[in-house]
C-alpha cells in the first residue's frame, strides 16, 4: 500500500477525516476570499483565529467530553459566565487565586449535576438546563446585574502578550490545556472508557467500567473547563458582564460535531475537537474580513449546524449503511429479537 493510502486509512480510522477536511475547506474558502476581496492574508488573521480558539476552545472541549460520554451539558455556557465573574471578583490581587476559585466552584457544581444524573438515572439534558438557570442566576446575583471591571492590568497585559506571530499567552494556555487533556485521553484508559460509556453504556457497565463515577467526573470536569475558559476570558477582557447568550453553545456544539464527535456518543478525539474549533474559527475570521453583520454570522453558523446535524442524523445514516451492513444488522436483529 502506498504511504498516502496508509496515511489516509489511519486518519480515517481515527475519525479525523471530517475535522481535517473541514479545516482544509475553510482554509481554501479563506484564501479564495482574500483573492476576491483583494485583501491579503496576514499574520493578523492568524492571530485573530487563534484568539477565537483561545476564547471558545475550552468551552467546545467541555461540551465535547460530555457528548462523547453520551450526555449533554447545557450548563456550560452559564459556567463560562460564572467562571469569569468568580475569577474577576476574587482574582483582583492574584489572578491564580481567581482561576482556582472559579475552577473549584465549578468542580463542585458539576459533580453535583453528575451525581443527580448518575444516581437517579436521569438524562443530563433537563438537569443541566436547571443548572444553566441556577448558574445564570448566581452570576446576576454576584455581579448585581452590572458589569464588573477587572483592575489587575498586569495580568490583562500578560495574557495579551504575543507569542510567536500568531499566538498570545491566552491562546497558548488554551492550546496547552488541549494538549494535556489529549495526552490523558490517549495514554490512559480514561479515553477509551469514556467512549465506551457513550458508545454502549450497557456493555460498558457489563464489562466492569465504573459508569457512575465516570459520569460524575465528566460533568464535573466539563464545568471546570468552562469555568477556566470563562476566567481567562474575564481577565482578557478586563471585566465581565452577565448575559444570557446562547452563542458559546452554538459555537461549541458546531465545533464538536465538525470535530468528529458524534451526538449519540462513543466517538470523538481531542485532536478532532481542536481541529473543529480551528475550522470554525477560520470561518468566523472569514466572516469578519467580509464585514459580515452579526446577524449574517449567526445565520451562517446556524446553517452550518443544521447541515452538520442532518449529516449526522441517524435516520440518514441508517439508509446508507443498511445495505452495506445488512448482514451484521440482521444477525444483531436476530439476536435481539429471538430472546
Amino acid at each position: 500500500m502506498s504511504s498516502f493510502a496508509n496515511a489516509r486509512e489511519r486518519i480515517a480510522s481515527q475519525g479525523l477525516l471530517l475535522p481535517l477536511g473541514a479545516i482544509v475547506l475553510m482554509l481554501v474558502a479563506f484564501v479564495c476570499l482574500s483573492e476576491i476581496t483583494g485583501r491579503p492574508i496576514t499574520t493578523a488573521n492568524g492571530y485573530d483565529v487563534f484568539q477565537q480558539v483561545g476564547t471558545y476552545g475550552l468551552v467546545a472541549l467541555a461540551i465535547a467530553l460530555t457528548m462523547v460520554a453520551g450526555e449533554f451539558d447545557l450548563s456550560v455556557p452559564a459556567m463560562f459566565g460564572l467562571g469569569g465573574t468568580l475569577a474577576v471578583l476574587t482574582g483582583e490581587s492574584d489572578p491564580y487565586v481567581g482561576v482556582a476559585v472559579a475552577v473549584a466552584a465549578a468542580l463542585v457544581f458539576g459533580a453535583l449535576q453528575g451525581g443527580i444524573v448518575a444516581r437517579l438515572r436521569i438524562s443530563s439534558v433537563p438537569v443541566t438546563l436547571g443548572g444553566y438557570l441556577i448558574l445564570s442566576g448566581l452570576t446576576y446575583i454576584l455581579t448585581n446585574s452590572k458589569s464588573i471591571p477587572y483592575d489587575n492590568f498586569t495580568a490583562v497585559q500578560d495574557l495579551d502578550t504575543p507569542v510567536g506571530m500568531v499566538l498570545s499567552v491566552h491562546s497558548l494556555i488554551v492550546l496547552l490545556v488541549f494538549a494535556a487533556i489529549g495526552v490523558v485521553a490517549h495514554f490512559t484508559k480514561i479515553g477509551s472508557s469514556l467512549r465506551a460509556i457513550g458508545g454502549d453504556r450497557r456493555a460498558a457497565r457489563a464489562s466492569g467500567v465504573p459508569v457512575s463515577k465516570y459520569l460524575v467526573a465528566t460533568l464535573a470536569f466539563s464545568s471546570a473547563l468552562a469555568a477556566l475558559a470563562g476566567a481567562l476570558q474575564g481577565y482578557a477582557l478586563a471585566g465581565t458582564s452577565p448575559n444570557f447568550a446562547l452563542s458559546p453553545l452554538i459555537f461549541a456544539v458546531t465545533a464538536s460535531v465538525l470535530g468528529g464527535v458524534r451526538l449519540e456518543g462513543g466517538r470523538g478525539t481531542v485532536l478532532g475537537v481542536a481541529a473543529g474549533v480551528a475550522a470554525l474559527s477560520i470561518l468566523e475570521e472569514g466572516l469578519v474580513v467580509l464585514n459580515a453583520s452579526d446577524s449574517l454570522s449567526q445565520m451562517v453558523t446556524g446553517a452550518l449546524l443544521v447541515v452538520v446535524a442532518l449529516i449526522s442524523a441517524p435516520g440518514l445514516r441508517l439508509r446508507r449503511t443498511a445495505r452495506a451492513r445488512a448482514g451484521t444488522a440482521a444477525a444483531e436483529a436476530a439476536l435481539g429479537a429471538d430472546k
Binding site: 484508559k189 480514561i190 460498558a204
Partner: peptide, 24 residues
C-alpha cells in the same frame, strides 16, 4: 448472548475495557 463488546471501540480497547487490574 448480549455481548458486552462496545462496537465503537477497537479490538485492543475492548480487550482492555473495564480491567480493574490495569494501571491508569
Amino acid at each position: 448472548q448480549e455481548l458486552s463488546i462496545v462496537p465503537a471501540l477497537t479490538v485492543e480497547e475492548n480487550l482492555a475495557l473495564g480491567d480493574a487490574r490495569a494501571s491508569l
